[in-house]
Amino acid sequence: MNISQSDIRRKYDKKVKIKLLFIPISIIVTIILMAIFTGVGAVDVSLKEILSAIKNIITNNSVNMEQKVIVFLRLPRIILSVLAGMGLAVSGTIMQGITKNSMASPFTIGISSAAACGASIAMIFGISLFSNSNLGIISNAFIFAILCAIFVYSISIKLGMKPEAIILSGIAINYLFSAVTSTIHFYADDHQLASAVQWTFGSINGAKWSHVLLLGVILSVSLCVFMRHSWILNAMVSGGDEMAKTLGINPDKSRTVVGVFSVFLTAAIVSFTGVIGFVGLVAPHIARLMVGGDHRFLIPYSAIFGGILLLVSDTIGRTLLAPVNIPVGIVVSYLGVPLFIHLIIQNRKEYF
């Protein structure tokens, strides 16, 4: 049976409309989950109480301790978990695209080990821009993550900015910073070592509105850049660099631009939350299995799934054994690994 070009076009447009329709629906679902999980904690509160607390803070009315906890502790934590999950998932999508490696993640180029090294130096030796403070740990983690990215991209540029060069350079730098971190830990006392190791677990504890605002701005700008390069990423992934060049695309330049924004976004997240692995690996795969490899849809869907995954993981971590907080980096692995394995088994043709 012959299928006309108009029929193919009509089916394609229908699929695109469905994918576009589910983006706002997914965003609404995420907002509903945020509202529900804000009320969940050591003391459960209703949506009415949450709205009342927000209103009182905005209008400078008197607020009780419970309302302060909602506005200054729970809400920043909830929003930061969603933003961090979105950022890690999108960065993972970009890294998988520019390296053409489905096992790549935001930490492929060694950002996590570099950030851990910077944080360890601040916690153990007190060497940072803001000594003996949480801000010193954050600044050190961010600076070392950026330095790591500079090293990797400098080596990659000399090697022609190819995907293989980025991955191999990242692996080498990752081992280097891991060795330095281990050496630093060797000289730490028990208390310092416990603090440094706990930082690597990843946690949303201590979230502040300033963190939310800064990360929100960085994520928004990065998403705009990524979406603008979505067609270019499609060409690079599906046809390779040679095909991209025939379309007038400079693959090395595009890979550098989106890579730099991905690194900057990841570095900002890690400096606030510590190392939260697996979100940047599993969320892009979930999105890819749902909507395919078109980066116009893969990027926003990865962000949504990543945000939901980290939001649910953090909520479980802070409520399961309350008042004890389980680091979100641990919980997300317990949730993500079985889900990821299930997806591989159910869709094994996509991988093998």
Rank of each mutant, 00 (worst) to 15 (best):
172 A>V: 11
279 V>R: 00
202 G>W: 01
87 G>V: 08
110 G>H: 02
326 I>Y: 05
28 I>G: 07
164 E>R: 10
197 V>D: 09
142 F>I: 01
186 F>C: 01
155 I>F: 13
114 A>M: 00
153 Y>I: 10
329 G>T: 03
230 S>M: 01
66 E>K: 15
142 F>L: 10
207 A>V: 02
252 D>H: 14
70 I>K: 02
55 K>L: 15
163 P>D: 09
258 V>M: 06
46 S>G: 08
137 I>K: 02
261 F>M: 06
183 T>I: 15
28 I>H: 09
328 V>G: 01
263 V>E: 00
271 S>Q: 02
347 N>E: 06
9 R>M: 15
323 P>G: 06
8 I>H: 15
163 P>W: 09
173 I>M: 09
338 P>L: 11
258 V>E: 02
337 V>W: 11
179 A>T: 07
45 V>P: 04
140 N>G: 06
208 K>N: 06
11 K>L: 15
215 L>D: 00
348 R>D: 10
118 G>C: 04
309 L>M: 15
227 M>C: 11
282 V>R: 07
213 L>S: 10
239 G>D: 07
349 K>Q: 12
105 S>C: 10
201 F>T: 09
299 I>N: 03
227 M>D: 03
204 I>L: 14
72 F>Q: 10
158 K>Q: 12
125 F>V: 09
208 K>A: 12
62 S>V: 14
192 Q>R: 08
337 V>L: 13
321 L>D: 03
300 P>K: 07
179 A>N: 04
301 Y>A: 01
147 L>Y: 04
345 I>C: 09
14 K>V: 13
115 A>G: 04
325 N>M: 12
187 Y>A: 12
228 R>G: 07
302 S>A: 14
256 T>P: 00
44 D>W: 14
220 S>R: 04
194 A>S: 14
238 S>K: 10
34 M>A: 14
44 D>F: 14
252 D>S: 15
43 V>Y: 13
105 S>P: 02
272 F>T: 08
28 I>T: 12
30 T>C: 14
327 P>S: 08
340 F>I: 05
150 I>T: 07
288 R>I: 09
258 V>K: 00
212 V>C: 03
109 I>A: 01
95 M>A: 03
96 Q>C: 01
107 F>H: 13
234 N>P: 05
111 I>S: 02
250 N>V: 10
326 I>H: 04
206 G>V: 05
293 G>I: 11
154 S>I: 11
165 A>C: 06
73 L>M: 13
234 N>V: 11
226 F>M: 09
320 L>F: 13
308 I>T: 05
114 A>D: 01
13 D>F: 15
329 G>A: 07
261 F>L: 00
306 G>M: 04
311 L>N: 06
